[in-house]
Every structure is written in C-alpha cells, then in structure tokens.
C-alpha cells in the first residue's frame, strides 16, 4: 500500500467522522466522534512525519480540551425534550457564521494549492521533528509565539478573576 493510498483512506475517514460529529443526534456521541476525528488528524500528522505535532494534538485536543467538553456535556443531561427551538434569527446568524468560516477555509485551501507544493513532507523528512519546530518557534515565529503566550496569560488571569469568590464577611 502506497503512502498516497493511506492518506486518501485516512482523509476520507477523517471527513466521515467529522460529518458524524454534526449528524449524530446525541451531543455525547458528537464529542466522541470529534475525538475520533482528532485521532485521524494525528495519524495524518504522523504520515507527514510530524510526530511531535501529532502527539501534541492528541494530548492537548483529544486529551484535555475534549475531556472538558465531555465533562460539561455529561453534567448538562441533554435530552430531546429540552432541545431549544431554532428561531429564524438563530438560523440566519448560523448561516452567516458558517458561511464566513467556509470562505476563510476556501482561501486557506487556495493558498496551500498555490504555495504548498514546495513543502512536500517527503522531501524534508525532519520537518516536523521537535528540534526544527523549536528552532522555528524561537527564531522566525518568535514574536507571534510570545504574543500568543501573553494572550494565554491574559486568559488565565481572567479565568482566575472570574472564578475567585468575593470575600465573605462573617459576623
């Protein structure tokens, strides 16, 4: 089996499970399909020899963020009766939001088709390894990297402030 074949199969499986995320009726099942989608994406990363990204994708998205999703959904106890009614307004806004996302993705795809040909994974086998990634992060992409970490700190401080209880005065 060639690499091409594997990537085609993986890609179709990814799309299938991604579709199942929005098609399945139960929110918990949706989340589980989303986790499976992340696994397929990790497999794609490994196929492109980006093992570090694959594992980090697994740890951060599948292992932490989706666990929190599942955590919240389990507490909500969603059933059919409690499903909120879709008004015309919400439908309209959903279409706008989805359409915008679609446009962004199409431009991103066009970019890959235009410039992505030189970055074939097979040509640069070490492209996704930790050393190269670290070198890139701390040289070429230093400013975005540091800015995003400041963003995270801001988010963390905000979360702590929100979660912090007001001092109770007990007489």
């Amino acid at each position: 089996m060639s690499l091409q074949m594997i990537s085609v199969i993986l890609g179709s499986l990814t799309i299938a499970s991604a579709l199942m995320v929005i098609l399945s009726k139960h929110p918990i099942r949706s989340v589980i399909y989303l986790v499976i989608t992340f696994f397929f994406i990790s497999a794609m990363y490994i196929l492109m020899n980006a093992q570090f990204l694959a594992i980090v994708n697994m740890i951060v998205y599948a292992g932490a963020i989706m666990v929190l999703f599942l955590f919240v959904l389990m507490l909500l106890n969603l059933n059919k009766e409690m499903e909120p009614e879709t008004t015309r307004m919400s439908l309209f806004s959903a279409i706008i939001a989805g359409g915008t996302l679609f446009l962004v993705m199409i431009t991103a795809l066009r970019d890959t088709f235009q410039y992505g040909k030189g970055y074939s994974a097979v040509k640069v086998p070490e492209a996704g390894l930790v050393e190269n990634l670290g070198n890139l992060l701390f040289s070429k992409y230093l400013v975005p990297f540091e800015i995003s970490s400041i963003l995270f700190i801001a988010a963390m401080v905000g979360a702590v402030l929100l979660a912090k209880r007001e001092k109770q005065v007990i007489d």
Binding site: F52, I55, V56, M58, I59, A62, G63, A64, V67
Partner: peptide, 10 residues
Amino acid sequence: ILFVFGVVSI
C-alpha cells in the same frame, strides 16, 4: 515521553 503523556491523557 510525549507518547506516554498522550496515552495517559487518552
């Protein structure tokens, strides 16, 4: 070592 953490988190 990251693989270990990944599996643990799964």
